[in-house]
């Protein structure tokens, strides 16, 4: 962990007008070796994951576990309730039969997978979050409308105050500004 050169500084924010420029700049930030940095865009910009060097997420594995839990739970529930806890004989049909259990099993598999996807995604993203230093920047408000940003945190080992500012400005940013913590 590098010592902070400027206390109270969250990092530098660079603004871009064009998505292509952001992608080119992101690739250069990645190649420079920064690790604690991010891009902010109003919509998912394809090609940016590669340019930032983001690796795949483990979300699908969580969803698989959620789905399997739903499947097991549904089958156990139907067997336990109708065939074990209170054997329920209806028109001579088997107390537990797989075909009749399929619809509920399917629905609960989907339900638990979807809930895992939803809550898992937000949890991995560490959201909801009450506040973030980037919201201190007036300029950053357009990150959800029509501007593209790169932020490099002061906590990054390669962060060098003015040096990082000049590095960002050299990437073709339209504006670079410090963001308070």
């Amino acid at each position: 962990m590098a010592t902070r050169e400027t206390p109270g500084l969250y990092g530098y924010l660079a603004e871009f007008r064009e998505p292509w420029d952001l992608i080119d700049a992101a690739a250069k930030v990645r190649d420079a070796g920064y690790t604690r940095w991010d891009c902010h865009t109003p919509f998912p910009l394809h090609g940016l994951d590669g340019a930032m060097g983001i690796r795949g997420t483990r979300l699908p594995w969580l969803v698989l576990c959620g789905g399997l839990a739903g499947l097991t739970l549904a089958l156990l529930m139907q067997w336990w309730m109708n065939a074990h806890d209170y054997p329920f004989l209806i028109s001579g049909k088997p107390l537990f039969g797989l075909p009749a259990a399929v619809p509920v099993t399917f629905e609960l598999t989907v339900l638990l997978s979807a809930l895992t996807t939803f809550f898992g995604m937000w949890a991995l993203n560490l959201l909801p979050q009450h506040h973030h230093p980037l919201f201190n920047s007036e300029r950053f408000r357009r990150a959800t409308s029509d501007r593209f940003f790169i932020s490099i945190e002061a906590r990054d080992p390669l962060f060098r105050g003015e040096g990082t500012r000049e590095f960002l400005a050299g990437l073709g940013a339209d504006a670079v500004e410090p963001v308070e913590d």
Partner: peptide
Amino acid sequence: LGWRGSNRHWHRYEKAYLILAGLATP
């Protein structure tokens, strides 16, 4: 939820959206 358009978030968000679409279809 404190969404700030982070691309590290978009990355998982898009995966989640794709999975939800895949689940909603059947």
